[in-house]
C-alpha cells in the first residue's frame, strides 16, 4: 500500500463513521421557509390581539379571551403543519440528491431524540391551557423546542445545537416577561430559523 491509498483509506473510515451516525438530509432552505411561515403567523396573531381599533398603546384583546385563544391555537397549528410538510418534502428531495434514504438508522435516532422533549412540552402546554396559565405557554414551548433540538443535534449538523440553545434562552426570557409571547415566537420560530437555515444552506448546500 502506498501513501495515497493509506490516506484514502483513513478518509473513507472517517466518512463512513460520519455518514452512519449523522442525518444530513435536512434542508437549509426549508429552515428559511419555516421561519417565514412563523413570521406570517405571528403577524396574523399580532394584528388580531393588538389590533388597530383601540387607543395607541392599548391592546384590543388579551390572549386569554376564549375566542382569541382558539384563533391563536389554529394559527399556530396551521404554521406547524405547513412547516412539517415543508421540512419533510424538502428533506426528501435533499436525501434523493445525496443518495441517502430518509428513514434509516440515523433519522430514527433523530426522530426519537427530538420526539420525547417535544411530546412532553406539548402535553405540558395542554395542561397550562386547561389550568388557565396562558402566560407560560409561549416561553415553555420555546424551551422544550430548544431542548428537543439540543437532544437531536447529536444526530445531525452541529448548528442545530446552537439553534436549540438560543431557543432555550429566548424561552426562559419569555417566561420571565409574560405577555409578549407573540413577539418571542416571532423571534424564536421566525428569525432564528431564518438565520439558522441561511447558515446551513451556505455551509452545506
Amino acid at each position: 500500500m502506498n501513501q495515497k491509498d493509506l490516506l484514502e483509506e483513513i478518509g473513507q473510515i472517517r466518512q463512513i463513521m460520519e455518514r452512519s451516525s449523522k442525518f444530513v438530509s435536512i434542508s437549509g432552505l426549508s429552515g428559511v421557509l419555516i421561519g417565514l411561515y412563523a413570521l406570517i403567523g405571528a403577524c396574523l396573531a399580532y394584528i388580531k390581539v393588538y389590533g388597530f381599533k383601540s387607543e395607541f398603546g392599548y391592546r384590543d384583546h388579551y390572549v386569554s379571551d376564549p375566542n382569541i385563544t382558539l384563533y391563536l391555537f389554529f394559527v399556530a397549528l396551521a404554521v406547524l403543519l405547513v412547516s412539517l410538510a415543508t421540512a419533510i418534502f424538502m428533506g426528501r428531495r435533499k436525501a434523493k440528491r445525496l443518495n441517502q434514504s430518509t428513514w434509516n438508522a440515523t433519522s430514527k435516532s433523530l426522530f426519537f431524540a427530538v420526539g420525547l422533549p417535544l411530546l412532553s412540552g406539548g402535553i405540558l402546554a395542554l395542561v397550562f391551557i386547561n389550568k388557565g396559565y396562558y402566560d407560560l405557554i409561549a416561553g415553555t414551548l420555546l424551551v422544550f423546542y430548544g431542548l428537543a433540538l439540543a437532544a437531536g443535534s447529536t444526530y445531525t449538523f452541529k448548528e442545530v445545537r446552537w439553534l436549540g440553545l438560543f431557543e432555550i434562552v429566548l424561552g426562559l426570557i419569555a417566561i420571565f416577561l409574560p405577555g409578549y409571547g407573540i413577539v418571542f415566537w416571532a423571534l424564536g420560530f421566525g428569525l432564528l430559523h431564518i438565520i439558522y437555515g441561511f447558515i446551513v444552506y451556505k455551509k452545506y448546500e
Binding site: 483509506e9 473513507q12 473510515i13 463512513i16 463513521m17 460520519e18 455518514r19 452512519s20 451516525s21 434514504s101 434509516n104 438508522a105
Partner: peptide
C-alpha cells in the same frame, strides 16, 4: 470488514439492513 467496524465504532449498535444500506 473495516467499514463495518467503522460504523460500529461510531454507533452503539446497528441492524443488518441499515448496514447493508450504508455500505
Amino acid at each position: 470488514r473495516l467499514q463495518i467496524m467503522s460504523v460500529l465504532m461510531a454507533n452503539d449498535d446497528y441492524d443488518f439492513s441499515s448496514l447493508k444500506d450504508i455500505l
